[in-house]
Design a protein around this nucleic acid. Sequence first.
DNA 1: TTTATTTTTGCAACTCAGTCGCAATAAAAC
DNA 2: GTTTTATTGCGACTGAGTTGCAAAAATAAA
Lengths: 126, 126
Amino acid sequence: MGIVRNTKSVSLVTDFFRQMDGAVGVVELVEKFKGQMNKSTIYRILDRLEDEGRVHSFLGGNGLKHYAKCHNCTSGHHSDIHPHFQCTSCGKVECVSCEIAIPELPNKRIQQVQLFLTGTCEGCSS
Amino acid sequence: MGIVRNTKSVSLVTDFFRQMDGAVGVVELVEKFKGQMNKSTIYRILDRLEDEGRVHSFLGGNGLKHYAKCHNCTSGHHSDIHPHFQCTSCGKVECVSCEIAIPELPNKRIQQVQLFLTGTCEGCSS
DNA sequence: TTTATTTTTGCAACTCAGTCGCAATAAAAC
DNA sequence: GTTTTATTGCGACTGAGTTGCAAAAATAAA
Ligand SMILES: [Mn+2]
Ligand SMILES: [Mn+2]
Ligand SMILES: [Zn+2]
Ligand SMILES: [Zn+2]
């Protein structure tokens, strides 16, 4: 499991994430790489990159799948759990490096937390 | 805007929410009311009930639309913003009545917060 | 470097949630 | 009861995501 072969498509995607700082929706990636690789290929490469711990995925405010690169994750284990933010003005989606305050719920065992924030980013509020 | 006519389908849906305490996915509602009303009708009724402030919607962990009844909302304004929780064991989805701790982000104006929790519910952990 | 093995890709067809236009129907108003 | 207007059913559609399979590419073996 994970990336085994270094294909042209894999390079294109990993190069993209190398210079991309924020998060990106798969829909945008499909559009970006239209003509260079097939839609299914993108989904499959992202799947493998996620298995490898090189990117992580989450659902944006619209419920669509997004990806961003990992920082300290390993193959099979994702350790970077954080909120995600989308600017309503410019549409940019990004990872937010801060802890999520997990609410204490009586008689409930919380295992997973997904926090999605919407608002105005630095560039758009000035 | 909002519910104007008291049709049979509207009654069925509102009756359902009257006795339903948790949240429910639209997919389940479509299944539940199959034979009694059309899929489009369900989506449209839920839309109107939400406009009226009688139910609110959110996306579940799978990105699918869910609804739950409101408590102190009015037509056009939803004031009950809270996390939602899904039990991985029984699948039940519910509203969580607690405040969401909004993280302070430098140079960002947070307008909307969506918090989705996954774990084990009271019934399933005992 | 040639050949064999195994992974990856393209393609086309598919699934499934959600939406839409429009004619038929039902609720409320008159 | 008749008119007006909102609602519904239906079927077709959209768009994200998935899948099976044969062709192509990458790696391993010879
Ligand atoms: Mn992230
Ligand atoms: Mn709720
Ligand atoms: Zn912005
Ligand atoms: Zn449970």
